[in-house]
Amino acid sequence: MIEFENVTKSFGETDALHEANILIEDGDFVFLVGPSGAGKSTFIKLILREINADSGRILVDGQDITRFSNRQIPKLRRDIGMVFQDFRLLPHKTVFENVALAMEVIHATQRTIKRQVPQILSVMGIEDKADEFPDHLSAGEQQRVAIARAIINNPKMLIADEPTGNLDPDTAWEIMQLIDIINRRGTTVVMVTHAKDIVNRMGKRVVAIDHGHIVRDSVGGEYGYDD
């Protein structure tokens, strides 16, 4: 559960997010849309505590994370899987090692790692790529590795910042299907996107941000504007 209560975050003169209020329940699927510079990434960075709010409260599973100390942040992030437009894989590590990193961070045993990484890779349909390096993979395959890394520790939430932004429409749709499957298994999903047809086709909840204001929040909504 994620709840924003009158959250404001400004950078100098501009309010990247202004008095935002929103409630995202467990198991929800939310598309976050809006023009470039609207405040979407700011919204996500606030949830991860990459940045902290100037005012207001942000509750994640009932805890106000704006009051978290630096030492509490790692714990927060272990409950959140993160996927980015540019994949953010480590180029000098194999697919297996890239995914294993997320498990090493939580001090999983080598045995558990050796058992679970191949499992998640086969769920993602890239079990045969385990020993490849990222730049030998197609863009779609790289994003699958990134998703595998994001969900291997069974996080409660998956947050994706334009995960299909670098993909062709067919591959984008495949990735979208994977994220949908993850959501059906019970993981809350917040996905920033500019992909109008994906949003319209999925028919999920759509939250629109513009100039730091939440201007629309509709279930089964449409993308709603032209870029």
């Binding site: 630096n70 030492r71 790692p74 993160m82 953010r88 990193l101 997320a102 961070v105 520790n153």
Partner: peptide, 16 residues
Amino acid sequence: RDEIMIMKYVGATNWF
């Protein structure tokens, strides 16, 4: 640097 950033995203503590 990238590795550190990614480790932090997956919840690595500073000591890790």
